[in-house]
Design a protein around this nucleic acid. Structure first.
Lengths: 174, 174
DNA sequence: TGCTTATTTGCAAATAGTGCGAACTACATA
DNA sequence: TATGTAGTTCGCACTATTTGCAAATAAGCA
């Protein structure tokens, strides 16, 4: 997602108006790496602007998405999560905390997949399910540490999938 | 998913009862490659057993899932889809029809991903978004045809992701 | 056949979003 | 600065998907 100023300019160019609600939401989403849900963003926004409507949050997120400024993520069947990172990237989900991380994958092109005849791939989305170890077990293995994006990250050769552990209930708030 | 008979035996072993509803659902799910939703399965079931409850369908699907006989798929944010194929596999979604296909990927282990420090991958799920070409353009490219699973399939080196096209509305029925 | 208790069902309720219209306001213009 | 208007916000109703609950029903054993 571009900076709030740039997004504001794009809005004006499209004949849209700059409201305090929109400005706030631009700021809250910019560089936001938490992959918030609409509800979550609404709560954040409400702190700074009591009275802002959840409806407006949904609306603005939809606009930003249409403008290509943010991406939608349907990850675990819960609420949609929004991501201001629109680079080609993928995700890792911590099964314990539900946290969602951006993951860059180098060589998707090398995947060998037996696709249905005539299937034209437009894009691929990869989700790594797992968990964040309390104390990063820095045993040699194949895990090369590579400080690249946001935080310290390690390049690993992904383990093959085992079996999806069921998520039974959904989180709730109130 | 095991055969209806085997599943029935597992049910008995667990002290569960064999009801006509369950038997019907075992049969409808076995070898079902359509990745039905609960609602869809309910409609199919209703044809053979008018009066069966949607609640029972949900319940039985949950049981089967807990027993590891079927898998859940949260794909596009719509209703959950159920898959009796519990092998390690992935999916391809046709953006036009919404159809969902099983996809086997050979070399997931070779992916180079920059995961967050300390992230332990438990499994990886890959979804190929695209569409089924009307007339399979069998141009040479890298697409090697490999008749392997269900239908004729081609092994391709997946194209890298472009940008996720937004799905605006949901399908509806009634 | 009768009993016990697992199941099925129907209905209410929770969650996640969307459609709609009335009230409000950004902002171009006079 | 005052004013008009069309874009926005917001509340509410409503849809879709799924789950909780309790009464009615029915497997399957004795």
């Amino acid at each position: 997602m571009h900076s709030p100023d740039v997004v504001a300019t794009k809005y004006k160019e499209q004949g849209r108006r700059l409201t305090p609600q929109r400005k706030l939401l631009f700021n809250l989403m910019h560089n936001n790496e938490s992959h918030p849900t609409a509800e979550g963003l609404f709560e954040e926004a409400s702190k700074r602007m009591p009275g802002i409507s959840l409806r407006t949050v949904y609306q603005t997120l939809e606009e930003l998405s249409e403008m290509g400024e943010i991406q939608l993520m349907h990850c675990d069947g819960g609420a949609v999560r929004f991501d201001p990172n629109v680079d080609e990237h993928h995700h890792a989900v911590c099964a314990e905390t539900g946290e969602l991380f951006d993951v860059y994958v180098d060589n998707i092109d090398s995947l060998r997949a037996q696709l249905p005849a005539g299937f034209e791939v437009q894009n691929v989305s990869i989700v790594f399910h797992g968990r964040v170890a309390k104390s990063a077990p820095r045993t040699a293995r194949s895990a090369r540490i590579t400080t690249k994006s946001p935080a310290r990250q390690q390049t690993v050769r992904a383990k093959s999938a085992k079996r999806t552990p069921r998520r039974t209930s959904r989180g709730s708030n109130t």
